[in-house]
Design a protein around this nucleic acid. Sequence first.
RNA 1: GCCGAUGUAGCUCAGCUGGUAGAGCAACGCAUUCGUAAUGCGUAGGUCUGCGGUUCAAGUCCGCAUAUCGGCUCCA
Length: 647
Amino acid sequence: MINITLPDGSTRKVESGTTAYDVAMDISEGLARNVLAAEVNGEVWDPQREIRSDASLKLLTWNDDAGKSTLWHSSAHLLAEALESLYPGVKFWVGPPIEHGFYYDVDFGDQTFTDKDFTAVEQKMLELAKTKNPFIRKEISKAEAITYFTEKGDEYKLDLLEGLEDGTITLYTQGNFTDLCRGPHMPHTGFVKAAKVMSIAGAYWKGDESNKQLTRVYGITFPKKQELTAYLELLEQARARDHRKLGKEMDLFAFSEKVGQGLPLWLPKGAELRSRLEDFLKEAQRKAGYQGVITPHIGNKELYITSGHYAKYGADSFQPIQTPAEGEEYLLKPMNCPHHCEVYKARPRSYRDLPVRFAEFGTVYRYEQSGELHGLTRVRGFTQDDAHIFCTADQVKEEVSNVIDLVLYIFDILDFKDFVVQVSLRDPENPEKYIGSDENWEKAERAIQEVAEEKGLNTIVELGEAAFYGPKLDFMVRDAIGRKWQLGTVQIDYNLPERFELEYVGADNSKHRPVMIHRAPFGSMERFVAILIEHCAGKFPLWLTPEQVKILPISDRFNEYAKGVSKVLENHDIRALVDDRSEKVGKKIRDAELEKIPYMLIVGESEAAEGTVSVRRQGEGDVGGMSVEAFAERIRSEIAEMLKKKD
RNA sequence: GCCGAUGUAGCUCAGCUGGUAGAGCAACGCAUUCGUAAUGCGUAGGUCUGCGGUUCAAGUCCGCAUAUCGGCUCCA
C-alpha cells in the first residue's frame, strides 16, 4: 500500500500501481472524465501511469494551465496523425504546446499544404478524436527506437534521438500514429471536441537560419465546441484594437511606399499625441536631474568604428553616405550613445559633476530585415527617448534604481499593469558575441540583478538576450494579440567608456573611468504609442488625447454660441472643436462617439439662453447640464486626478 | 532575409469558370434647422499596386518587382 496526499492535505491509502485516474474515479466519475493529466510529486504525468510509491497528487483538468498544455500537446499528436493519414510520407520534427494551442513542424516533402486544406485536416482530427483512441506510453531502449524510426525513414526523429540518453526514451501511440515523446498525454483523443488549424508558417529547422525550413502548422483545440467559438470571438475583439487598424482609422500615422518601408509618417493627430507624451517625459526627466542635449542625425563612420557598432552591424545597416571628399563616409545614426560619449568628452569632468545625465529624443535609423517590419512596433526610422548617464561605479545601483522608478512611474500613470521585467544576460555558450572584459560583465550583471531584487521586481532572467556591450533590464509589455514587445530598457555599460576613453578626475586628483548607463523608459516613441493605442483601444487618457471635447450645436443657429464655448475652453487650455455641419445632432453624436472623443457638449436653445452646456461622456452617455466654467473645472480636475500620482 | 498568403474608389469590401468595374460609408452639392449613436435627394471619385507576358479579349491566367499580413530568423 502507498499513501497519496491530495492538495487539500487529505491522504489516501491505495494499492501500489494505482493511477491518478483511479484516484479521480474514487472521488467522482465526473471528475475522472475531466482529468487530463496529474501532477505527481511536482511532475506532470499521464493520468494512466501507475504510481508506485508515496506521492503528492494533484489532478489536472482544463482549468489548470498544465491541463490545457497536456490537451494541446496531445492535440499536436492528433494533428500529426491527421496529417500523416492525409499526406502519407510527411516527416515530423517537434510539436509542442504553446501559450494558445500548439504547433507541429512538418516536412511535407514534395506535397503542398495551404490554408485551403485546413478544413480537411480539422475534420480528420475530429474524426480521429471521436474514436477515443488511448495514448499509450511505452518505454523503449535507444536501439529499438533507432530501429523503429529508421524503418519509418524519419530522419528528424533520429536526429532527436541522438540527443537522448538510453533508458529515458518513451514512445506514445494513439491510433495509427507513434511519436517519440516524453509526454505526458491525456488518456484518449476523445477529449478534443473542437479543433482549428490557425495558420501555417515557415520555420527554420532547429531555429537556425542556415537550415532548411519546415512547415509549422499552428492549431488549437478545446474540450467544448463553444470554447472555440468564444476564443475566436476574443481574437476578433483583440484584432479590433490593433494599432495599425486604429492608427489608420484615427488618422494618427501612415506609411508610404514612396517614402519607404518601415518609415512612419506621423499625421497631425498622432504628432500631437506624441509630443504630449514627450512633454510629459521631459518634465519628469527635468525633475530627475536630466539635461537635454541635441546631436546630429549622422556621424562619421569612425565614430561607430570606435564604438564597435560598425564591426557588429555595419554590413546590415543603411550604408555609409559618401561625400565629395575622397574616402569620407558618414552613417545615418543607428543609436545615440556614441554621440553622447562625445558630448561627455566636450569638456573635462570632475567626480563632483557625476552623475551627468544627457537626454535626447534621438531619431535613429536601422535597416531592419524587411520581414521584421511591423506597424509602429518595428520600424526603420524611430525616435528613442534616450538618455545616457555617466557616473562612478558607486553610483551605478542608485542610478539604475532611479531609472526603474521612472519607468514604473510612467507605467503607473498610463495604467500599464501587465508587464514582465526581463533581466537580459550574456549567453554563456557564445562569449564571442560580446565585447569587454569578463570582470566588467560580471560587475554589470550583478549590479542589475541586485537592483531588480532590491526593488522587488517580478523578473525573469533570459540568457543570451544582453546587448553586445552589456546586460539589460527590459520592461516587456504585450500587444493586443499577446505578442511581447520591449518598451522601457536600462543597460549598464563598462565598454563604451573604455572605447571612447571617457574619464573624470576623482577626489584623489587622478583619472578614472566612468560607468555608462543607457536607458529609454518608453523604448521608442513609435513602439510606445503603438502599445498605448492597443492598451486603451484608441480611447486615450483625457490629458493625452488630441481632441478632448467636441461641441455639437443642435442646429446651425447655435454655431455662434458653440464657437463662443470653444473660445472659453481654449482659454482654459482645453482642446475643443465645433462640429458645425448641417447634420442632425444624433449623427454628430454618433460620429464623435466613433472618433472616441471623450466629451461631447450639446448646445441648443436652452444652453445658449442660460450659458450652459449639455455634457455627454464618450461610451457612457448624458451626464447632465452645467455652466461652461463648471465643465472646464471638471476637465481640469479630472486631468489633475490622472496625473496626481506625479508628486 | 526565408516560408506562405494578400493587394479593386479616401475606408470596408463585392466582382463565378477571362468579355472591358460595383455597393455601403466618407467627400462634395442642394434641400432640411433638427435635442443625446446614422435626414433625404443628387454629384464626383478607379491607368483594378507596378512592369512584362499569354490571349481576339486580362481586375480575373503566368512571370518579375513592390508593399502589406501571419510566422521563422534578427533586434545596437
